[in-house]
Design a protein around this nucleic acid. Structure first.
Length: 433
RNA sequence: GGCGAGUUACCCAAGUGGCCAAAGGGAUCUGACUGUAAAUCAGACGGCGUAGCCUUCGUGAGUUCGAAUCUCGCACUCGCCA
């Protein structure tokens, strides 16, 4: 599944003498167990570590990418990754702050497990002494009976401690409350760590800092059950300086699956990163060295209008996720569509290829523009389309559309295509038959 | 099991019989300014071939000329008591 060509290009920065120092510099550690022990552990002989991904959707998203890349950095330092996909924990659902999760059917979760395993394996090498091993917690929880669960695991858990976890107490203090199902989640995740400790000698779990309660659930359980101290690293929640949520595009999650978020859309997402965020993103989401990132930081400070850091970031991350060919296509599309020149003067083949990267639709020449906005997904309804047009926010081949009854007849380019734009940078392609 | 409080549009949150498609804030979108940036300012923000109609205020029934607002049943949530 993994692309050896991409993985081969990745390396940790040799200017750090320990991967621990590097992940600290990259801002990947928000909380952890004992720091000096971790530094020693990560700088020494190969250890086995794990990170879990619950199948709560058909694809992982950018938030998960942080974890995947942290795993990869540890693997590059010689350690052995276990990629856990939560076939059982995904059936239970970890408590979200706002509300109870809707349970998905077992069939759906099983299907998602397959997709996510595929994605996890893309980012980690399957070769060498420290090849990634994929595990599924359904393998050890499904066959366990309730009585064994309560006797062998439940006894190690104190309800008082469980209630104090942020995820639980936040819900107890909200109108939503919490079901026994979600309350139990932390126990399941603790069991995972214990199981992986026993069968693989796994001594480190990584995850988002919002999972800290679940991470310590495991370290505490292992301490009680085995009398051994193991470790956990919690990565910071990635935030935007302007206060909006990171990883959302028009309110939707940015997915790693190219059918859910196209390579072009992913490229655009990164290209639009704020100046004030771009350096931090380069550290977390690329394998560029400290020296390279420092040079780009300098470029942001001295000539921000060139947006070199954003361009580099966009190319790096898109390549990481979708490979270099898809990235090259996204870059070409962006150049064609955002270039200065007249669209009619463009090489029509390049333009067509660019439009295929965008949301697009095929239509007859007399179709009104308002309808095309809906067909391409640029607006959610005809009302919204008319509103956008009346606000002067819709362009056909870079010419402002004046009335919502206007058709694309006459605007069609020689190759039988037209470029529809909403606002400054939301584009769609129209193919006329 | 008993008592009390609650369920409003993407989120938070006003509204307690007509002036409510529903205040305000956030998010989002558009315009101006720009660097496919941020900040700022302005406008928009249920649907519909658009000054009118349709659907929405947990859910089902009802009262009324008229309900998000009143009554009853049901579901769910929170708190206190048992």
């Amino acid at each position: 599944m993994s692309d050896p060509a991409i993985l081969a290009l990745q390396a940790n920065d040799p200017s750090f003498d320990n991967v621990w120092e590097e992940i600290i510099w990259r801002g990947l550690v928000h909380v952890s167990t004992d720091e000096s022990e971790l530094r020693e552990l990560l700088g020494g002989e190969p250890i086995t570590y794990y990170c879990g991904f619950d199948p709560t959707a058909a694809s992982l998203h950018l938030g998960n990418l942080v974890q995947l890349l942290l795993m990869r950095r540890l693997q590059l330092a010689g350690h052995r990754p276990l990629g856990l996909v939560g076939g059982s924990t995904g059936l239970i659902g970890d408590p979200r702050p706002q509300a109870e999760r809707t349970l998905q059917t077992k069939d759906v979760v099983a299907e998602w497990v397959g997709y996510i395993q595929g994605q996890v394996s893309r980012f980690l090498s399957a070769e060498g002494d420290n090849a990634v091993t994929l595990v599924n917690n359904l393998d050890w929880t499904e066959k366990m009976g309730v009585i064994d669960f309560l006797r062998d695991v439940g006894k190690y858990y104190r309800v008082g401690t469980m209630l104090k976890k942020d995820a639980v107490s936040a819900r107890l203090n909200s109108d939503a409350g919490i079901s026994y199902t979600e309350f139990s989640y932390q126990v399941l995740q603790g069991m995972d760590f214990l199981e992986l400790y026993r069968s693989y000698g796994c001594v480190l779990q990584t995850g988002g800092s919002d999972q800290w309660g679940n991470l310590t659930s495991g370290t505490d359980l292992i301490h009680r059950a085995e009398g051994v101290s193991v470790h956990a690293i919690g990565t910071p929640l990635i935030t935007n300086t302007d206060g909006t949520k990171f990883g959302k595009s028009e309110g939707n999650a940015v997915w790693l699956d190219p059918t859910l978020t196209s390579p072009y859309a992913l490229y655009q997402f990164w290209l639009n990163t704020d100046d004030s965020d771009v350096v931090a993103r380069l550290k977390v989401f690329t394998f560029l060295t400290r020296a390279e990132i420092e040079r780009l930081a300098e470029a942001v400070a001295t000539e921000p209008f060139r947006r070199e850091a954003q361009r580099t970031l966009a190319i790096e991350v898109t390549s990481l996720v979708h490979g270099q060919r898809a990235t090259a296509a996204a870059v070409l599309a962006a150049q064609a569509l955002f270039g200065q020149g007249n669209l009619a003067d463009l090489d029509q083949e390049t333009l067509e290829a660019a439009l295929r990267e965008l949301p697009n639709t095929t239509t007859a020449p007399h179709a009104p523009v308002a309808q095309l906005l809906v067909d391409t997904g640029l607006t959610a309804s005809l009302s919204e389309a008319r509103r956008a047009i009346s606000q002067g926010g819709v362009y056909l081949n870079n010419v402002k559309v004046l009335t919502d009854t206007e058709t694309i007849e006459g605007a069609v380019l020689p190759s039988g295509v037209a470029v529809l734009r909403r606002g400054k940078k939301t584009l769609a392609g129209v193919f006329v038959e």
